[in-house]
Nucleic acid binder design. Structure first.
Lengths: 125, 125, 125, 125
DNA sequence: GTGGTCTAGACCACG
DNA sequence: GTGGTCTAGACCACA
């Protein structure tokens, strides 16, 4: 999978890495049990600091998306222990101000839903 | 309108204020042309520094949601010049990793849409 | 002459009044010796504070463009004592960053000169 | 490049910094992609507060002259997205009262143009 | 070590 | 009394 960093983004680099890996899992580009590149490899390839990649991996491990151990390296987990209610709370908190903007800008709900459809089109199931 | 700050949130205070005011506009709690409290009033009421409120107001002015001038004080704009395409791009960028998480957690699309419905229920029109 | 205030401008109101009166003189809309409206009249007409008009008039008097006395009221001076070198210094200081912007934006010098021609077209001489 | 602050100027310090950097770009003293000193370095060198420099940098970033990111620090942009029409409007608005003064003071148009020539002499191309 | 955020307090410009 | 500017110093996020 190709990771790309936008150095001009407001989003910190470690967050970009974390997001793209999660999107990669959802898209099926990263299979369960598949190994991720080592911290050193990825940081070299992206031209960024090792600490930054490390931070992204730690965050993913902490959230339960990946496992890290010395023997196997870093790999996508087969089971995800995420709590749906916790997720929905986070989801609402993040999306509410965005939907408010849409409302004020007179963007139709259908347009918003189309956008969501487009994103989820090729995923999973 | 009642503004509430969560001092434990990861979201910076000025961003919380900015978001809540936009939500307030969408919900109709803040009418167009209505005045916002002065920087000093609001900072005192919320128990935070003047400059933090000022930063939120500047951000809102910059984004075109409110106007600031000495004669009228700070007030909700009547016209919003936001570009829909720019918005949709931002929207997609923000929502994509969230939807990816939902996908991985096997949260049904209907659940996500219900969440959106719930938020937009009492807005606008 | 019609004075118009833009309450959304970054330029303070007293400065807008001062500028427009000077432009009025240059355009010949305000003749030498002509009386200006009283502070009270003008502030009422523009819907602004008396102090603001007063500040503009004081500034104009200070710079030598107008005279103020109880008997005659406020009137355009017949002779202007401005120093050309002082003016040119101020002019350079103000226009230099603007010309720098033009340079960086690849705006041709001719375009800038045309803009100046357009402004001065109907003035004086 | 040497930045100099006039503490007696009416122009706020952050504006002086902003103007001088733009002039520096136009003069070629600051090359595209070149890094600017860090907020702390520059504030120490100029004997002013960090936040004041920060404000100038933010303004420059906002206007598209420079980029700020953690990886590269602060640097001159290579492409400038400024809109020419927007610029010309601002230019006219700023220069009109100055030209009016020149007109009233009987300063010849040639003198004004010479002043502009002198400023632009060593720039660009 | 860098910029981001927040606090605190001061003075000034403006209306 | 309002926002604008500046200073000073602190802690944190990021790389």
């Amino acid at each position: 999978m190709l990771l790309e960093i936008d150095f001009n983004s407001n989003s910190p680099i470690y967050k970009q890495i974390r997001d793209q890996i999660i999107i990669g899992i959802a898209e099926g580009l990263l299979k369960k049990d598949e190994n991720l590149p080592s911290v050193r490899q990825l940081s070299t390839r992206l031209g960024i600091n090792m600490h930054t990649v490390n931070k992204a991996y730690k965050m993913l491990e902490q959230e339960g998306w990946i496992g890290i151990n010395k023997k196997r390296g870093t790999f996508i987990n087969t089971q995800f222990g995420g709590n749906k209610d916790v997720f929905l709370e986070k989801f609402e908190e993040n999306i509410k101000p965005l939907l408010a903007e849409a409302e004020i800008l007179n963007i139709k709900k259908e347009t918003v839903l189309e956008c969501i459809d487009k994103i989820m089109l090729n995923w999973g199931e």
